[in-house]
Design a protein around this nucleic acid. Structure first.
Ligand SMILES: [Zn+2]
Ligand SMILES: [Zn+2]
Ligand SMILES: [Zn+2]
Ligand SMILES: [Zn+2]
Lengths: 159, 159
DNA sequence: TTCCTAAATGAAAATGATTATCACTTTCAA
DNA sequence: TTGAAAGTGATAATCATTTTCATTTAGGAA
């Protein structure tokens, strides 16, 4: 699960061709940026980084690449309430763990947490099974977010 | 918990003034529309209904009213991936039950489900407690969505 | 009830993220 | 090597949401 990373061919090459997509410089750079950051990047932030690496890359390619990465389930898109999409690798290489989010409704800060994840995921998979049966829905992934006020935003208030 | 609904004063009047907001015709109509629909309405859909009731109501008021309803935790805003916000009453009058969503990534259909909710909510409240302690985060609400393909969208495909 | 002022409003313009267009370039299988 | 299909960037277009600002209104005080 980890040793395929040091092949000459990057681990995602097979995935791309499996979906009928070509491997291009722009796509490699965008994916590389996501692999290299822990943060939840916006399309523009990715564009700036990509553009710094190779100024030939345009915004359009960033969006289009993100779309196919999402389709291939390599990337998740989130909405944290700040008016722009936020992109993050699904659990992938780098030992990135599956996690959920705490979102501050005041300052939009996002905290990843992995505590309680095992229990949550266990319940989710049971729920998934039930829902799949009852609604004949083919579930591919889930989203869990808690909203509230982070420490900085609720200190100094009474309620 | 239910008897206050048949007062002359609507049940939400206290809530508005408690937050320092005035009660206006536009706000009453917007809230009334949300109370009267099961669907997850977009701002524009609400605007159209509101405008039909009272043509003086503008789009701006719809957005502004939704903002304060969210602030008062009477309404939740969702993102189902179709590029526009979707608004729905939180559990309120009408015996509206707390529920979660199944979102079809192909046709954007949304199914509310309440099955398994009790178990989920029980786990969530334990998780909440843990997260509140560890991250000093004041949690006010949560979001759970499952994504996948609805029956219509995955019939006739192999994977 | 009348008055007064902060709050609320609508129309219109502005914003800003995302998407569509289209002529040009690149990939890759044959 | 080559050609068709896929990919691309610059630019314009879209379109949901927000801002602006002159005007109206809600609701507490008198
Ligand atoms: Zn905060
Ligand atoms: Zn995250
Ligand atoms: Zn569907
Ligand atoms: Zn719902």
């Amino acid at each position: 699960m980890l040793e395929r990373h040091r092949r000459g061919q990057s681990w995602w090459h097979g995935k791309f061709s499996g979906y009928g997509y070509k491997i291009t410089a722009g796509r490699e750079i965008v994916l590389g940026i996501l692999v290299g950051s822990e943060k939840h990047l916006s399309a523009e932030e990715i564009y700036i980084k990509a553009h710094a690496i190779n100024p030939a890359i345009g915004m359009t390619t960033v969006y289009r690449t993100l779309d196919i990465l999402i389709e291939m389930r390599l990337v998740n898109k989130f909405d944290f309430g700040d008016g722009r999409g936020r992109y993050e690798l699904t659990e992938g290489p780098k030992g990135l763990r599956h996690h959920h989010h705490l979102v501050c409704t005041s300052c939009n800060r996002v905290i990843d947490y992995t505590d309680f994840i095992d229990e949550e995921v266990e319940l989710l998979s049971r729920t998934e099974k039930g829902l799949t049966g009852k609604y004949n829905f083919k579930i591919s992934h889930h989203l869990i977010q808690f909203y509230g006020l982070c420490d900085k935003c609720h200190s100094g208030r009474e309620n």
